[in-house]
Design a protein around this nucleic acid. Structure first.
Length: 807
DNA sequence: CATGGCGAGTCT
DNA sequence: AGACTCGC
């Protein structure tokens, strides 16, 4: 069966959550309804609105309170709450009930979401045509049916009956199939209503994209057919972003790059055009969908491939201590257990993998997310397994989450904004004994499952014991805690030497360990070097090739500066000294006024002097809550120097964090690193998506103006931009070295900076880095992350020197 | 702080 | 394996 001649249907339940609520509570029938999510803020967030309420102006995105204003008599049933989070299981069950009805009509059913399913009914249509004459189709077989391009269904029926007499492009065979398809879909929808009481709408076309597209054109309780010859009419006014896959960033860049807004405008571009402007795959896909072609098959899938649950902890509700983390992971783990038990009983399958994901707030309020996976072994299935393993994964892989251990106050260093556990990679349970274990476990009865939770926390917490890693493996629930405190207990030991800040040697060791400490010297030097190069460059030079080509002198110095730089000595300075010292790093080049003033501006604007008296121990809880750059790294060492009698601090106006004076430079560089990362990302994106669109990738141009950075009167915003573009500027005559990391060709004399740039990317990525493998779970998760270490490998730069001299 | 909790799929 | 995108 040719893919282009399929009959594909999308069934979409009308305001599904509302219908479920109405069915469960018949008193609601006929009334305006909006389902709100538990969130008590301003009446809860509306996630579904029935059509009565829509008619009165209630929409999603509103809060419950707003809905009441628009429609005082509105009913606001709420999504139930279980374990502190929204519990949508009743909607999931209802969706499954519907899917079961759909499945009676074809096995080729793909559940697309809780309330949507694609059906490929090509076969049923062919079967029907064997015994049913299309000419006997009448409107009473097609209630609530619309055909795009026709005023009403009768006209479409008539067109089919007359072989499309009026239209040259009428594809009779295809239209006939769609018409029969529409008849079958009417029956399907009737069956759904009959058996579940739910109304739905449907789109009928020859592929998934189009079925989806037209399904929404007539709602509720309607179905819409899209004959081939109506596609262009539909496209002529259809915003491109309405098409599935084009509603996000990609669709936006397509519109920007091609300067179009409607689907029909895509048709003027050749396939090659589109492949050049985007990539091969996307170009071809765009070319085809512009002509109504979408070959993606309907997958036969009834059950979800993964089962997961997650929760956000936004803003003030971010998790700050170990207890909250444990609590929420327990709740999430319990939910997974519940749902997995049901799934095991219903589908006789077992997940082979678990993924725990989380995100933490950066000091500036943005967040970084991370995830770790674990492949189950057969011995894994024991009480509270998911919770324990999840906690283990989070704690184990995220040194940045290590607590600040002080006075029994067990705080997480980075506030957790999001937690999620999901399991997947299901395999069918065979008759073999091992895979049956999960069912055994779940069926074993409450005694085992409930596995009374001893109050293990308190005594363990205060007195962490040394533990033998091998023997405690997977033993009991205290295992996690014990392991945890073993780790966190090291902090004071590491801290001790640093208290005396004059001990340079100790500081250096710490600096080496901490990526963001390294960042300080890297970025200071990095920027400094750039300005130096610009100075040496003749200002009047006109061509790119004039950009100075001198040996990358400090390559090895820079590589090593993380280890031996004394930039990290800050002790005994005044605030202004520190600021000036930072600025001085950029003042060596008197010609680079912009950079100097910009940096000064940055420092002045972000650092608001705020001297605070601090006693030897942070009796004030707020003190321990200071979260700056290093807090997100694993380096607990520097933090704990609270023993100094008086600490001067600043408030960073970019991220509102309190920064101790000896971290001002680091902190400023940290913000710079974040900005650089963003730019690099944007650049990568534009290079990838619009490779041949010169307007989007100005950096790629080798035109004259791109080569005079020192004269560039750019403003603050463009300052870092110029740095980024500086890194990728290449000219034919420039000796280059291919970067092993990104494959780009980089001018030799900028190679060091280029490496530093990757360093910058890595730094921000490695907010959640894993500093060292832990033997205990070493078997669980592969961690062969290459070059995860922020410590520079001397290999690359040295190689670049060699190649420089060989040319 | 302010659509949240999903689930699928792609890229590297 | 993990980060990221898309859509409901």
């Amino acid at each position: 069966m040719a893919q282009e001649n399929r009959v594909v249907v999308l069934i979409d339940m009308d305001c599904f959550y509302c219908q479920v609520e109405e069915k469960l509570n018949p008193e609601l029938a006929g009334k305006p309804i909006a389902v709100v999510q538990y969130n008590p803020w301003k009446g809860g967030g509306i996630i579904a609105v029935n059509y009565v309420a829509r008619a009165m102006g209630v929409t999603r995105h509103m809060r419950g309170d707003e809905a009441k204003e628009k429609c005082p008599e509105i009913q606001l049933p709420s999504v139930p709450c279980l374990r502190g989070k929204a519990d949508i299981s009743k909607y999931r069950d209802a969706g499954k009930d519907v899917a079961k009805v759909l499945q009676k009509f074809t096995p080729l059913l793909e559940r697309a979401s809780i309330d949507e399913a694609y059906l490929d009914i090509t076969e049923p249509v062919q079967e029907r045509l064997k015994t049913f004459n299309v000419n006997s189709v009448t409107t009473d077989l097609l209630p609530n049916t619309y055909a795009l391009g026709y005023d009403n269904v009768e006209q479409f029926i008539a067109d089919v009956h007359s072989y499309g007499s009026d239209s040259l492009e009428f594809d009779y065979e295809h239209a006939k199939q769609l018409l029969i398809g529409a008849v079958i879909v009417s029956e399907i929808r009737a069956a759904v209503y009959e058996e579940t009481g739910y109304r739905c709408s449907a789109g009928i076309a020859h592929n998934k994209i189009l079925a989806k597209l037209v399904c929404g054109m007539n709602k509720p309780n309607k179905q819409t057919v899209l004959p081939k010859h109506s596609i262009n009419m539909l496209y002529s006014t259809l915003p491109l972003k309405k098409v599935k896959h084009l509603g996000g960033k990609f669709g936006y860049t397509v519109c920007e790059v091609l300067k179009i807004t409607n689907m029909i405008e895509l048709q003027v571009f050749t396939e090659k055009d589109l492949q050049n402007k985007f990539d091969e795959k996307n170009g071809t896909w765009l070319y085809k969908i512009a002509r109504g072609i979408d070959l993606e098959p309907v997958q036969a899938r009834f059950n979800p491939k993964s089962i997961g649950c997650c929760k956000q902890f936004k803003g003030k509700s971010a998790l700050l201590d170990l207890e909250s983390l444990k609590k929420w992971l327990t709740d999430l783990g319990d939910e997974i257990e519940d749902r997995l038990e049901k799934d095991a009983l219903e589908n006789n399958r077992t997940p082979k993998q678990m993924v725990v994901s989380f995100s933490t707030y950066l000091p500036d309020g943005r967040d970084v997310s991370s995830s770790r996976s674990y492949n189950f072994t057969d011995d894994d299935l024991c009480g509270e397994f998911f919770t324990k393993k999840a906690l283990e994964l989070v704690m184990d892989t995220t040194e940045g989450l290590k607590i600040k251990d002080e006075e029994g106050n067990r705080r997480l260093k980075a506030p957790i904004k999001f937690l999620g556990i999901s399991v997947g990679k299901f395999e069918d349970n065979t008759e073999s004994k091992k895979t049956k274990r999960i069912v055994d476990y779940f069926c074993a009865g409450p005694s085992k499952v409930a596995s009374a939770k001893p109050k293990e926390t308190e005594n363990q917490d205060d007195k962490p014991k040394p533990c033998d890693k091998k023997s405690t493996e997977k033993e009991g629930k205290e295992y996690i805690l014990r392991k945890f405190f073993q780790v966190s207990n090291k902090a004071p030991v590491e801290n001790k030497p640093i208290r005396d800040l004059s001990e340079e040697k100790n500081i250096k060791e710490i600096v080496v360990e901490s990526p963001l400490d390294k960042q300080e010297s890297f970025f200071a030097k990095f920027l400094n070097k750039n300005t130096a190069q610009f100075t040496e460059e003749p200002k009047s030079s006109e061509t790119v090739s004039d950009i100075v080509i001198h040996p990358p002198t400090p390559v090895c110095d820079v590589i090593n500066c993380g280890e031996n730089s004394n930039d990290t000595e800050y002790s005994g300075s005044t605030i202004n000294d520190e600021i000036n010292k930072s600025v001085a790093l950029f003042e060596e080049d008197p010609t680079d006024i912009d950079r100097v003033s910009n940096m000064r501006k940055l420092l002045n604007s972000t650092m608001i002097p705020d001297v605070i008296e601090t006693n030897s121990l942070p009796k004030n809880p707020e003190d321990s809550q200071i979260r700056n750059t290093e807090d997100l790294q694993e380096d607990t060492a520097i933090n704990n120097k609270a023993s100094t009698s008086k600490i001067e601090t600043f408030v960073c106006s970019e991220c509102s964090k309190t920064i101790e004076i000896d971290k001002v430079d680091m902190h400023a560089d940290y913000h710079l690193a974040l900005r650089l990362r963003d730019e690099e990302r944007q650049q990568v994106r534009s290079e990838r998506k619009v490779t041949s669109a010169p307007k989007i990738v100005p950096q790629q141009n080798t035109d004259n103006k791109s080569k005079k950075p020192s004269l560039d009167q750019s403003n603050d915003k463009n300052e870092t931009s110029s740095i980024a573009s500086f890194l990728v500027k290449i000219d034919d005559t420039t000796p280059t070295e291919k970067c092993a990391e990104c494959g780009k060709r980089v001018p030799l004399d900028k190679f060091t900076e280029h490496l530093d740039f990757h360093e910058a990317q890595r730094l921000s990525r490695e907010i959640n880095r894993k500093p060292k493998p832990t033997e205990i779970t070493g078997s669980a998760v592969k961690r062969k992350r290459k070059s995860a270490s922020p410590v520079k490998k001397p290999k690359m730069p040295c190689k670049s020197i060699a190649s420089f001299f060989s040319r």
